[in-house]
């Protein structure tokens, strides 16, 4: 465990220096003593969580959070391919941008979760409520992560939730409008709200645990 912690510090350094080669090397070495799910679920996830938290504290910027997530996703795809049975893909989870077209927040959350050993469907952006409901039903999505950038899109979550009233879909929201008004997620009846990529990961871990 302690070993993994010091490896995590090294990995964090490699990621923040955008040194993909070093990151691959560090993960490869850790693989000697650890299974792929420990690498993803503990080493990578704890490293990305710290990076997410540092953004929240104002010590890192989003470009660093984004680049770190992308590098980790590439590294982990090598040892834990998308179809690997070890990946946590149940209950079925998806991420989408509701109404607007700003995809960076979604991309950051998606790569953080995938690099931490989860598998989820990327539904894209600019989705209307109607379209989203059709997809959720057709694909039997149980955990729906929503990223928005515009306030008007954030306010639409309420209607989505009403329309999904009789289903057991858990809705997790995030994005700038929710950060600027921390009561907003409750007002629109979301089940969870995550401030940043680190919270997104913790929430998904919790929901997955509760649902098992």
């Amino acid at each position: 465990m302690e070993r993994l912690q010091s490896t995590s510090v090294q990995l964090e350094h490699a990621l923040l220096s955008l040194d993909q080669e070093a990151a691959i090397q560090i993960v490869r070495e850790a693989q000697g003593n650890n299974s792929p799910d420990i690498i993803a679920g503990e080493l990578i996830s704890s490293t990305l969580m710290r990076i997410g938290d540092s953004w929240e504290l104002g010590n890192l910027s989003l470009s660093q959070v984004y680049m770190s997530g992308i590098i980790c996703e590439k590294v982990i795809d090598k040892i834990l391919p998308p179809q690997s049975p070890i990946r946590k893909s149940q209950p079925k989870m998806a991420i989408a941008v509701l109404e607007d077209f700003h995809l960076l927040g979604k991309r950051i959350i998606y790569s953080t979760l995938r690099a931490s050993g989860f598998e989820l469907v990327d539904l894209g952006g600019g989705l209307s409520i109607e379209r989203l409901i059709d997809i959720v039903k057709a694909e039997d999505i149980k955990i729906l992560l929503l990223s928005v950038l515009m306030l008007s899109s954030a306010l639409r979550v309420k209607e989505l939730k009403t329309q999904l009233h009789n289903s057991d879909v858990t809705i997790v929201v995030g994005g700038a409008p929710f950060r600027f008004d921390e009561q907003l997620w409750k007002e629109v009846n979301a089940d969870y709200y995550g401030k940043d990529s680190s919270e997104a990961l913790q929430i998904v871990q919790k929901i997955m645990g509760d649902r098992l």
Partner: peptide
């Protein structure tokens, strides 16, 4: 540009 009824226009 994409218009909205209750929000600012966004880039497409």
């Amino acid at each position: 540009v994409i218009y909205s009824e209750d929000g600012p226009p966004n880039s497409g």
